[in-house]
Simulated assay, not measured.
Amino acid sequence: MPHASPAGFRHGLTLAAARTIADATLAKGRELGLAPLTVVVLDGAGKLKAAYREDGASLAREDIAWGKANGCLAMGLAGRELARRSQAMAGFMNALSDLTGGRAVPVPGGVLVKDDQGVVLGAVGVSGDASDKDEVCAVAGIRAANLVPETGDPLA
């Protein structure tokens, strides 16, 4: 049952949407036969909405997934754009990682979640397989929640 929010406070990414994103992300990974995945869904304030770690996922996957999502929110840019900037500005990206306590991982698999008006509601980070494949799963999860994924490149 939804709770009323205080006047002027906008929740953005709902728990129901975060669960849909996480479930559909992992389902896409199973469909593709990927290695065990971990998915982290953060709201627009960078707060945890959902985190699932599949059986068999290695130990650091949650931190990597969180870093992919958090890096997107920290800079307002999706994973592919962060990866490009990391190549061009390695010193800055190293400083960003330090400033965020290691929670800025500038690679594909970090995807911004937007509404149909382009407002950023949160971000998804996926880790477990190759970054490009992680990203495919995140995009599928976001679309399953009827929201708009932003990877940093045009989507098909």
Results as ranks from 00 to 15, higher is better:
1 M>Y: 09
2 P>V: 10
3 H>Y: 13
4 A>Q: 13
4 A>R: 12
7 A>E: 14
7 A>L: 15
8 G>V: 09
9 F>P: 00
9 F>T: 11
10 R>N: 11
11 H>Q: 14
11 H>E: 15
12 G>L: 01
12 G>D: 07
12 G>A: 09
12 G>C: 06
13 L>C: 03
13 L>K: 00
14 T>H: 07
15 L>E: 12
16 A>T: 14
19 R>G: 07
23 D>S: 09
24 A>R: 05
27 A>I: 07
28 K>L: 02
28 K>G: 03
29 G>E: 00
29 G>T: 04
30 R>W: 10
31 E>Q: 15
33 G>M: 05
33 G>E: 07
36 P>M: 05
36 P>T: 12
37 L>Q: 02
38 T>V: 11
39 V>G: 02
39 V>K: 04
39 V>T: 10
39 V>M: 05
41 V>E: 04
42 L>I: 06
42 L>R: 01
42 L>N: 02
43 D>V: 08
45 A>Y: 09
46 G>E: 09
46 G>Q: 08
46 G>N: 10
46 G>H: 05
46 G>W: 01
47 K>M: 13
47 K>H: 13
48 L>W: 11
49 K>E: 09
49 K>F: 01
50 A>K: 01
50 A>G: 01
52 Y>A: 13
57 A>Y: 05
57 A>F: 05
58 S>F: 15
58 S>H: 13
58 S>E: 11
60 A>N: 14
62 E>A: 14
62 E>W: 02
63 D>R: 13
63 D>Q: 14
67 G>F: 03
68 K>R: 10
69 A>N: 00
69 A>Q: 03
70 N>H: 15
71 G>R: 00
72 C>K: 00
73 L>E: 02
73 L>N: 03
74 A>Q: 08
74 A>Y: 15
75 M>P: 03
75 M>E: 12
76 G>P: 12
77 L>C: 08
78 A>H: 03
78 A>D: 04
79 G>H: 02
80 R>G: 01
82 L>G: 04
84 R>M: 12
85 R>G: 08
87 Q>T: 11
87 Q>H: 12
87 Q>K: 14
88 A>G: 07
89 M>P: 02
90 A>E: 15
92 F>S: 12
94 N>K: 14
94 N>M: 12
95 A>P: 01
95 A>G: 14
95 A>D: 12
96 L>E: 06
98 D>Y: 13
101 G>C: 09
104 A>S: 15
106 P>C: 10
108 P>V: 02
110 G>M: 05
114 K>N: 08
115 D>P: 10
115 D>F: 06
115 D>R: 03
116 D>I: 07
118 G>E: 07
120 V>W: 00
120 V>M: 08
122 G>M: 06
125 G>K: 05
128 G>V: 07
128 G>N: 06
128 G>Y: 04
129 D>Y: 08
132 D>A: 15
133 K>R: 15
133 K>C: 03
134 D>T: 09
135 E>T: 06
137 C>V: 03
137 C>M: 07
138 A>H: 05
138 A>W: 03
139 V>E: 06
139 V>I: 15
139 V>Y: 04
141 G>E: 00
144 A>C: 12
145 A>K: 09
147 L>Y: 05
147 L>V: 04
148 V>F: 05
148 V>A: 01
150 E>I: 01
152 G>E: 01
153 D>E: 15
156 A>E: 14
156 A>S: 13
156 A>F: 09
